[in-house]
């Protein structure tokens, strides 16, 4: 009797637990679905509003007071040039710092300070970088509201991303590879340049792409350096037809970038400008999604290819 009663109690308890299990399973799936749905709505809203504006003219026209004639030419050219500066500044600096921390740094207080510092920098709001750039680049170094100032600002912003990605990529290389190189008489730098860097290059590249994808969409720090202006011209081309064929005048040119152009249009009351904002937003989203997608693909392929 007692035994049977016990058994039914246990069965009821198990059933109760199972119900909870199922309940959570449904909650989880529904939550994930809702999240996906919202993002779908975000994209679709922009597609519906912005798609009609996405003609070739939109890419080849300057911004204009008439919404129907306005385009993103100066914005995408500006974004390209700013990203160029950002990459040139952030990649060597970030990769070098990552290599130092992972391969060279002795275990001491200074190293620990640098490591904690990199972690903290990653958590500093982007607008603070804008304030730093406003004081340092724009005024103290006298760079003004130029492409150079903006590129360097975003370089500082993504530096922690590049450092962390470099360290992670390097850390995945087994010690035995380093020892193999040292054992045939390689110096530390030979080990790093012949082995560590080549074998971690795909991982580092992934980090760089993710960093640049973040920089491409950053608005606040660019606004902070005071670069929200009406730009209806292009900077001097970096490539010249006459000797010395390269010109760096563009570095000091005023500019606008994609997210700034979009923000500009969003904050106008006229609805026609908001359609332009949707179109610009769509271009921006496609750019960042493509870059992040490439990074995810690279990482996925990497994991499959190399088995140490």
């Amino acid at each position: 009797m007692d035994h049977d009663k016990n058994l039914t109690e246990i069965r009821m308890m198990i059933a109760r637990h199972r119900r909870w299990d199922r309940l959570f399973l449904i909650t989880g799936i529904v939550t994930l679905m809702i999240a996906m749905l919202i993002f779908f709505a975000l994209i679709m809203g922009m597609v519906i509003d912005g798609m009609p504006r996405l003609t070739l003219d939109f890419f080849t026209s300057f911004p204009s007071r008439r919404p129907g004639a306005a385009g993103i030419l100066s914005a995408w050219v500006g974004t390209t040039l700013v990203m160029l500066v950002t990459a040139v500044a952030a990649v060597p600096l970030g990769v070098s710092a990552g290599v130092y921390l992972e391969e060279y740094a002795p275990k001491n207080l200074l190293t620990e300070i640098i490591e904690i510092n990199v972690t903290n920098l990653a958590g500093v709001p982007s607008i603070i970088y804008g304030l730093l750039a406003l004081g340092l680049f724009v005024y103290q170094l006298g760079l003004g509201q130029s492409i150079l100032a903006a590129g360097l600002t975003l370089a500082l912003l993504i530096l922690p991303v590049v450092i962390v990605a470099t360290r992670e990529a390097i850390r995945s290389i087994p010690v035995s590879i380093r020892e193999g190189a040292y054992a045939v008489g390689a110096t530390k730098w030979q080990t790093v340049s012949d082995h560590i860097l080549p074998y971690s290059s795909a991982g580092i590249l992934t980090g760089i792409i993710i960093g640049l994808a973040r920089a491409i969409g950053e608005t606040a720090p660019i606004i902070t350096i005071g670069a929200l202006t009406f730009i209806a011209f292009l900077p001097t081309s970096p490539i010249q037809s006459e000797f010395p064929f390269l010109s760096f005048e563009w570095l000091m040119a005023p500019f606008t970038v994609m997210p700034i152009q979009m923000f500009n249009w969003v904050s106008r009351p006229e609805e026609a400008f908001q359609l332009n904002a949707a179109a610009a937003g769509l271009v921006l989203v496609v750019m960042t999604l493509a870059m992040n997608g490439l990074a995810i693909y690279l990482r996925y392929n990497l994991r499959k290819k190399i088995k140490w």
């Binding site: 996906m36 709505a41 975000l42 922009m46």
Partner: peptide, 24 residues
């Protein structure tokens, strides 16, 4: 599928989310 999808969403520029908040 969900993990890279979430990662992609984390990469959407904030100005786009601002647009979404104001107009949707």
């Amino acid at each position: 599928i969900a993990k890279p999808f979430l990662e992609l969403l984390g990469g959407i520029p904030t100005v786009v989310y601002g647009y979404f908040a104001l107009l949707s």
